[in-house]
Write a protein that binds this DNA or RNA. Structure first.
Length: 431
RNA sequence: GUGGUCGUAGCUCAAAGGUAGAGCCCCAGAUUGUGAUUCUGGUUGUUGCGGGUUCGAAUCCCGUCGAUCACCCCA
């Protein structure tokens, strides 16, 4: 039994876990690039005040914060949007607008871990800064949809819940609710799907709004509401409107959202939201103390809930599993059948590697059968047997099990030809 | 931070107060130049950790750490 364990809420990633994570990260990055987003990165640690300023003190309970050796209050970032706002406002003149930036990295929350919720998780963030129009909102929603589709999660598996905080702001103004009470009200709406009706009614009456009024407002048909007109026209032109479900109960938990808000949720398993985001036009001004006022919008997608959804969606699971296996397999396994020929074999290994192929071999003398087992275990596609007949070599297709005798000087082209035609290895049984 | 359930080999799990086991995995051999299957043999534990009750504790009690579920929160 190991003496040391991972710290509570943190996980080890063994090679297969890591390959799985890498496939997810690569997909995020690929789709974001397709949309013209460029990568950036902020620090993992920020001053605790950066998050207090944005979200208020009550959020500190969830912050992974501590004091450093210089007595500074610091926090492992719970999200990257404040860092982005800080970075963007600091050098906003250096970048043409709109800034379409994405980031992938770890975030931390000090919470009780359970399935779908750990203390460290990886988030994909995509944000558009300096564009206040609905086109930016549509671009982000489209990116979120295409990201899901890229994973093999289809229209029957997920949808976008979409709303606009302005709709509620107008309602509350009309009701005569002072602006300082809006956040508390929106918190209630955020929970309205999960909370018991009595609890909701009680909370609303404490604020001074009747439950019936809220329900009546929520249940109206928003499809012709002006707040969604431009966004709807844009997404319809992209052929993506069918993914959208207008839902006034979506307001997102954080205080900084100002306009369009949306989340990606699965339709089959009742999981937590896979992604969420919206427009936050006042955050840059807040972070920069009013020095820079930039409209902005963005969303974040976490790896944990997405990973669960990937596993539970058959087509996505199959695609993902294949990608993971492909990432782990090698192209060529060099088998040393005669130890006297190890020097020649090493030369072949290095030459093939230099040509860009993934090549492995046994580091110590082993029976040929063992070496083939090694090749099998890492799902190599080709075997090259170096033995006493050198400079003749056996080139074996490890899937079809056919082999040919070739001259060492012809190895490189023969390997390339074989890899170009060889099918991918069959999936492991039960995959 | 609060409450419920759980913690036994690398993994999945047996053993319900009386000597800690099975399957899988892993290693070796059958098979000294060809992968599967099969067969044979082998490694693996202070039963999460600490304390208590008992002649005797994986088992009962207390504490603690971790996992999980609910609350909470969802960036």
């Amino acid at each position: 039994m190991a003496t040391f364990r991972t710290v509570k809420g943190f996980r080890d990633l063994y090679p297969e876990d890591c390959a799985s994570r890498d496939v997810i990260l690569a997909t995020w990055s690929r789709v974001a690039r397709r949309y013209g987003f460029v990568p950036y990165e902020g620090p993992l640690v920020e001053a605790t005040d950066l998050y207090r300023k944005k979200s208020g003190d009550e959020i500190s309970a969830q912050l992974f914060c501590f004091e450093d050796k210089g007595k500074r209050e610091i926090t492992l970032r719970p999200e990257v949007t404040p860092s982005l706002a800080r970075m963007a406002t600091a050098r906003q003149r250096d970048f043409r607008k709109p800034m379409k930036w994405f980031q992938i990295g770890s975030c931390f929350r000090y919470e009780e871990p359970q399935e779908g919720r750990s203390r460290e998780f990886i988030q994909f963030n995509a944000d558009i800064i300096g564009e206040g129009g609905p086109g930016a909102d549509a671009e982000l929603v489209a990116l979120a949809i295409d990201t899901m589709l890229a994973f093999g999660i289809g229209a029957e598996d997920f949808a976008i819940r979409l709303s606009n905080r302005q709709v509620w702001t107008d309602f509350l103004t009309q009701q005569g609710l002072p602006e300082d009470k809006h956040p508390a009200f929106l918190q209630v709406i955020d929970k309205i799907q999960r909370a018991k009706p009595e609890v909701t009614a009680q909370k609303l009456s404490a604020i001074g709004i009747s439950h019936e009024q809220v329900l009546a407002f929520m249940n109206q048909d928003f499809s012709e509401h002006p707040a969604f007109a431009a966004l709807a026209a844009d997404l319809k032109a992209r052929g993506l409107w069918s993914f959208i479900k207008l839902d006034a109960s979506i307001v997102r938990g954080l205080a900084y959202y100002t306009g369009t808000v949306f989340e990606v949720f699965d339709l089959r398993h009742g999981l937590r939201a896979v992604a969420g985001g919206g427009r936050y036009d006042k955050l840059c001004a807040l972070i920069s103390d009013g020095a820079v006022d930039l409209p902005a919008a963005g969303f974040a997608m976490g790896d944990v809930v997405l990973g669960i959804l990937l596993e539970r969606t058959a087509a996505a699971a199959k695609q993902h599993h294949e990608a993971v296996l492909a990432a782990l397999q090698s192209d060529v396994f060099v088998i040393i059948a005669d130890e006297a020929r190890r020097p020649e074999a090493l030369g072949i290994v290095q030459a093939l590697r230099r040509s860009g192929l993934r090549v492995d071999f046994s580091l110590s003398p082993q029976k040929v059968g063992k070496q083939f087992q090694g090749a099998e275990a890492q799902r190599a596609r080709l075997g090259v047997v170096v033995g006493s007949e050198y400079p003749q070599l056996q080139l074996k297709d490890l899937i079809s099990r056919q082999q040919q005798l070739i001259d060492a000087s012809q190895l490189q082209p023969a390997v390339e030809a074989a890899l170009a035609t060889a099918p991918s290895p069959p999936l492991i049984a039960g995959a």
